[in-house]
Amino acid sequence: MREGEKEERTQPFSSPEFAPVKLGGGISPQLIAGRKAGKAEKVHLVIRRLLRQRAIQEGKAFLDLGTDSFYPFFQQYSATQQALQALGDYAYTARWYPSSFGLLQLREEAQRFLRTRFNVHIDMEKELMITAGASQAFDALSRTFQGECFLLPDLAISTIHTIAIANGARPLRIPLHPVSGLVNLQEAARLLEREGRPTIRFLYLNYPHNPTGVCATRAFFEEVVAFAKQFQVLVVHDMDSWYQAHISGISLPNILEIDGAKEVAITLLSFSKEFGLPGLRIALVAGNAEVINALRIHNSEYSVMLPEPCQYAALAALQAFREDEE
């Protein structure tokens, strides 16, 4: 039995429901609406847990190619192992309050990574920050901006849907193109016109796409940037996995590679799936300086801080990756 399976066996399959609360004026109806909206999309998580438990009971290995942090690759991946070592080496830094937007050394390494991996040049003082995972960044975006609606693909991870609705935004779903599998921007434009061009908090894009695996092209991102400028929409490119080539030799584009993208876009790169380190709750956010500044203010005022041992672990992962590439 692998580490972590014993704990999961004891977890209940059902998630907590809201009970009537008299204190504090009751539970926010927006939070309840967000939970209901995301419930159907979380069915796959329940199925995954049931399948894992059955495999454990039958003494079989269970491998989830989509989200499994126990994927054997990570047991040999130097970046993952160096990160785990750094957690212990820098445990003493938990004695003081950490930065709300990221260690200087980590931001320097992230800046270097974006330059060498995507040829994207970022001002680490104005266009880059570290957040407590991608989900926290989505929540901060939903709280910080006040657009009436948000745009997301027909198929998207439930977290985005739930968080944005819970923060008072209305979802506008964009169909995927029947051939390419990419977001159909022509349909998105028609949708906005039909809705009377409402204010939009952000357009969420996840490429490589979860759950279909479809990969975006530079040509597609060029269309996205043009669309965003036309409708004055902030684009959030969630590149949560496979932003490194590994052994495949496949180089996937990031939206910030496109000329003018920083005028309308930010990108998020998580350490969870890419390095097999979901417990760190670390992601880097880069792009539009005004958006980054707003997120920094949000995290500072709401005291969103990232434990420094986790930040040093993320730093070790990026450094090990760079050394392997060199």
Rank of each mutant, 00 (worst) to 15 (best):
E125W: 06
L284T: 07
S180W: 00
S272G: 13
E222D: 06
L65V: 08
P29C: 04
L31H: 01
C149A: 15
L152R: 07
V214H: 03
A86E: 06
A169F: 07
E263I: 05
A33I: 06
E109T: 08
R95L: 06
K42W: 04
I292A: 10
T10K: 06
E274L: 05
Q76G: 14
F74S: 05
A61V: 11
L31K: 00
V235C: 03
A55K: 05
L87N: 09
A228W: 01
A316R: 09
G24P: 12
F73C: 05
P175D: 12
V291G: 10
P175C: 15
T212P: 02
G279A: 12
Y77I: 01
S158E: 15
I160C: 13
I292E: 02
Y71G: 08
D324Q: 14
T199P: 05
A33C: 04
F18C: 13
E3Y: 13
T144R: 11
I130H: 00
Q57S: 11
L104Q: 10
D139Q: 10
V235P: 00
I130S: 01
A79M: 10
H161R: 11
I27R: 00
K6N: 12
S14D: 15
C215Q: 14
L152G: 03
S248V: 12
Y71W: 11
P208T: 11
T131S: 06
N293R: 13
K6A: 11
R218V: 10
A286V: 00
L128D: 05
D154S: 15
A33E: 13
A216Y: 01
R54D: 09
I282M: 08
R143A: 12
D89M: 11
P29G: 05
E257C: 08
F321C: 11
F62Q: 03
A314P: 05
A164M: 13
T93F: 00
K22H: 02
V291A: 10
Q136P: 02
F18H: 12
T212I: 04
R95S: 06
A19G: 02
A265P: 01
G213C: 13
E257Y: 05
V120L: 13
R9P: 07
H298S: 12
F150L: 14
A226F: 09
Y92H: 14
P20G: 06
K39T: 09
N210W: 09
L31W: 04
F138C: 02
S69W: 07
G168D: 08
P72N: 15
F145A: 02
L280I: 11
A316G: 07
A320N: 08
V179A: 10
L176S: 08
T10I: 06
Q111V: 12
I297M: 02
E323M: 14
R190L: 15
A137S: 12
G34T: 06
L128A: 09
E109R: 14
D259P: 05
R49K: 15
Y90W: 07
L205T: 14
I200F: 02
S100K: 03
L114D: 01
H246N: 12
